[in-house]
Computed example of a mutant assay.
Amino acid sequence: MSRELFWFGVVGGSAMFVHFSLVSWLLVPAGLSPLVANILGFLLAFKLSYWGHRLKTFNAHHVPHVKALPRFFLVASLSFALNETLYFLLLRYSQLDYREALLLVLFVVAAVTFLLGRFWAFQGVRQP
């Protein structure tokens, strides 16, 4: 499990960096609202997240995409729904800057994503 946690951190951190960078340095400064930019950031970072977790975190090289991709997309979508809800609440009811709120939300939701990815999306297909 320590190997999985290491790669989850590397892959998740990379996807989080892509997501955060797109939202904070490109999309919001270009005029999109933070919530809309967050949706686009999620969609763009998803591809990196799926392939990284499939190949490195959960070592699921042999699982068919027809099984893993829909499951992981559901996991990511549920995590994102939680992300967007928490982000909305923090933007609306806290004094946090949108960047601080986004970082906080991304870290909280990462734990949910790991657990669902490990115990459901890629379940039964990891190589020892």
Rank of each mutant, 00 (worst) to 15 (best):
F119T: 11
L115W: 14
L32G: 03
H65P: 04
V125A: 13
F114N: 01
M16K: 05
S49L: 01
A76S: 14
F46K: 00
Y98V: 00
L82E: 07
F72Q: 04
S94R: 05
L27V: 10
S49V: 01
L55V: 08
W51F: 15
S49T: 10
L32V: 06
M16I: 13
S14E: 00
V36Q: 13
G124Y: 10
L44I: 15
R118I: 05
A76H: 02
S94M: 05
L89Y: 12
G9P: 09
A111M: 13
N38V: 07
A37K: 03
V125P: 07
F6E: 05
F80E: 04
A101E: 03
M1Q: 09
P128Q: 13
T85Y: 11
N83A: 07
S14V: 12
L116A: 15
G52V: 02
K56I: 12
L96I: 08
V28F: 03
V108W: 03
T85A: 13
L78W: 05
L26G: 08
G117E: 04
L103W: 11
Y93N: 10
S21T: 14
S77I: 11
W120T: 09
G41N: 03
N38D: 13
K67P: 00
F46R: 07
H62Y: 11
L104A: 11
S21R: 00
A111Y: 12
V105T: 14
P64F: 14
V108I: 15
V109Q: 02
N83I: 01
F72W: 06
A45N: 04
L86R: 01
F73T: 15
V75I: 09
V11S: 00
F6T: 12
F114E: 04
R71G: 11
V11A: 00
V63S: 14
W7Q: 04
V63N: 06
F20E: 04
N59D: 15
A121R: 04
L32P: 03
A37H: 06
Y98T: 10
L40A: 12
A111F: 15
P64W: 14
H53M: 02
F114Q: 00
F42G: 03
